[in-house]
Design a protein around this nucleic acid. Structure first.
Lengths: 123, 123
DNA sequence: CATATTACTTTGACAGACATAGTAATATGC
DNA sequence: GCATATTACTATGTCTGTCAAAGTAATATG
């Protein structure tokens, strides 16, 4: 139920995740919230406050645009659309992620092998 | 020279990185600083302030212990040693990293294929 | 003896994630 | 009709990790 991923490991990725979802079509807050939960296999819940904070950040940076949906009379929804700048930003972030992944793997996994069930080296 | 990895992508990993280095033997601040720089192929520079902040955090949590080196007369060095708790913590963080990696890959890379050179879909 | 390098420390700023709380509309059950 | 749950968005303030900046101090180098 609650996220298994510590919040610090997510930091800096939320905008990339949001942009990636919007690449696949316009969407609104709650839907994106649900989508992330589902995509992560219920392992990661992006909190609403974080999500809407990210929207505002991304909109200010012209990476996304918003418009109110048609259901004006009820359940108003604010839709977000990714812009050209947003797409560039996504590609850049994705590259950065793949790059960071390699380096972090080296820094985190590198060095000693795990001694856990060390049953090798029989001499 | 300056880090290619944005600081937010590192967040939460510094302690794991430090613990991993200490797993390979006692070391001191400056050496660890250099080691990280080298291990990352000069792509990531963990700033000193961050490093020493992390030491204090880790020591408070009993994941590492410190002692002053023998070179008391000059170039005093404070060595750090990983504790049992620190080793556990490392294993846990490593697992978490490998787990987060998968989920983040799904969230960041998943969905649309890159349309970069989209030369398909005729008619 | 000035400068560079090694080596550690402290203070304060900043940004992103989130807790909390609130608004408001629709749907569901009684 | 009314309480409750769910959908959907917003605003305020807190916390934490990273880092800039500045300082101390010793050794090595020219």
């Amino acid at each position: 139920m609650s996220p298994t991923i510590s919040t610090d490991l997510i930091r800096g990725h939320t905008t990339t995740i949001i942009l990636n979802i919007l690449r696949q079509g316009d969407s609104y807050g709650y839907e994106i919230y649900k989508k992330i939960l589902a995509l992560s296999g219920n392992q990661y819940e992006l909190k609403e406050a974080t999500l809407y904070t990210a929207f505002r950040r991304l909109e200010k940076e012209a990476c996304i645009e918003s418009y109110w949906g048609d259901e004006t009379q009820g359940g108003r929804r604010k839709y977000y659309r990714i812009t050209a700048k947003g797409k560039e930003r996504y590609q850049h972030s994705k590259r950065e992620w793949n790059f960071a992944k390699e380096i972090l793997d080296r820094l985190i996994q590198g060095g000693l092998e795990d001694e856990e069930g060390s049953k090798s080296t029989g001499s």
